[in-house]
Amino acid sequence: MADPYRWSFWKREFNSPILLASGTAGFGIELMEQGFLEGAAAVISKATTLKPREGNPPPRIIETRFGLLNSIGLANPGVDEVLKILLPQAADLPCPLIINVAGEVVEEFPAVIERLEESTVPFGYEVNVSCPNVAAGGIAFGASPEIVERISTLVKRVSSRPFSVKLTPNEGSIVESAKAAEAGGADAVTVCNTFLGMKVDWRTGKALLKRSVGGYSSPALLPLTVARVFKTSEAVKIPVLASGGVNRAEDILELLAAGAAMVQVGTWLMRRPDAAFELREGVISLLESDSP
């Protein structure tokens, strides 16, 4: 790895611009065991909540003609188990681990992070404001810039580590939410999350996902991410972590050119668990072939 290419965020330098997106890499442990973390700058864990969550009833996943719908329901063992079992195992990862945090009420985010501060393992946090706010009738936290700012402020107060706010494309203005996150003290924004989608069997009239609607991801969504990264990176000074539609090295370079500091790979990792290595090689070779 003698190449000169480096990417940085949160005062740290990496030889890759690739982050493994939340929900598609676990806590990195399985990928580490297979040697598949080579090429990844950092792993973003699956969502962690205060209490264990068993997740949504199946079917939780369905592929449509041009993309994947999922409704996992933030299944996770809860922060106690994460601290006791998963983080000690993840201490050996060859790259930093960012913990994704979710909640049902505003106060849950700082509460989970306060617990995670007990561990030396996390490099930082990603706060998922795309999940439904139970206290507001299930509308996503991210729909309201005021709530995004409030969560950011509360997290900033308890966290000794940097954090990104993972914004939703489904409700509200992503640019306003990004500004609100920055105002609240966030150290980055993740742009963005899956798009609300649904598949119905027209013969039966029934949805194929048990919970009817889910998050849609697809390589076809790339231009939607590029546009949102472009607009938010013009509006805020904090780094923008791009997420959505990446499956080629060109996609990564395109998002970086549009204003992203780092680029996440998610759904594609389910197909290619070793994607980080391949994509990083691709990025380097494109940069080398392009240099004078």
Binding site: G23, T24, A25, G26, E30, L31, K46, G55, P57, P58, R60, I61, N70, I72, A75, L269, M270, P273
Partner: peptide, 10 residues
């Protein structure tokens, strides 16, 4: 995924 990570196949 098929290798225990995504929790899709419950």
């Amino acid at each position: 995924c098929g290798w225990g990570v995504c929790e899709g196949c419950s």
